[in-house]
């Protein structure tokens, strides 16, 4: 892939990504926010492909845009909130402080990045980020965290059932 094509693709993925992320915050209806979030996850998967993280791009689409978003939409459906319950998002003074704080953090990080200078990408082999290569590193170097993750997911299953159950 040529250098200019990569730059064009970066902007094609980055601009809608930021727009749909802003849509999550701007939406009043939780279903609209969820749809914006699905869109953001898909654009982010494109960015992952540009970074030659092919396995993670697929995991992003399957786990985030598939499983986690279905969970969110199910909860939105179960709660069936009316407009009165959702309430108007009134921006009190404290919330403006929150917006200013987030903007300040952004300025801080971006200025630190600008000072650190350009970061040239290293040339990587053809198998970088593939299922085979990442799978090998997960099952050798990161075997213990990988197994701990299965315990974590089991705890999350039991915890979710216990918390959401009406009578324990």
């Amino acid at each position: 892939m040529g250098a200019s094509a990569e730059t064009v693709l970066f902007w094609i993925f980055a601009v809608p990504l930021i727009a749909s992320a802003a849509g999550v915050v701007a939406a009043r209806n939780p279903v609209h926010a969820a749809m914006s979030l699905v869109s953001a996850f898909f654009w982010l998967a494109g960015i992952y492909v540009l970074l030659t993280a092919h396995l993670l791009a697929f995991v992003q689409v399957i786990v985030y845009a598939g499983a986690i978003m279905v969970l969110f939409l199910f909860v939105v459906m179960l709660l069936s909130l009316t407009d009165a319950e959702l309430g108007l998002e009134k921006l009190s003074a404290l919330k403006w402080v929150g917006v200013v704080g987030a903007a300040g953090m952004l300025v801080l990080v971006v200025s630190a990045l600008a000072q650190s200078g350009p970061r040239a990408m290293r040339a990587v082999g053809a198998d970088f980020g593939t299922v085979r290569a990442v799978g090998r590193i997960l099952f050798t170097q990161y075997l213990l965290p990988f197994e701990a993750t299965s315990v974590l997911l089991l705890v999350a299953i039991v915890g979710a059932v216990v918390v959401a159950k009406e009578k324990i």
Binding site: I18, L44, A103
Partner: peptide
């Protein structure tokens, strides 16, 4: 080649949007 700074700045934007949302949304 897109420099790594672009990706890191994009991540900073995404994080700031999420952070603002956590503080602002009810």
């Amino acid at each position: 080649m897109v420099p790594g700074t672009h990706y890191l700045a994009l991540a900073a934007f995404l994080f700031a949007i999420g952070f603002a949302g956590v503080l602002v949304k009810k």
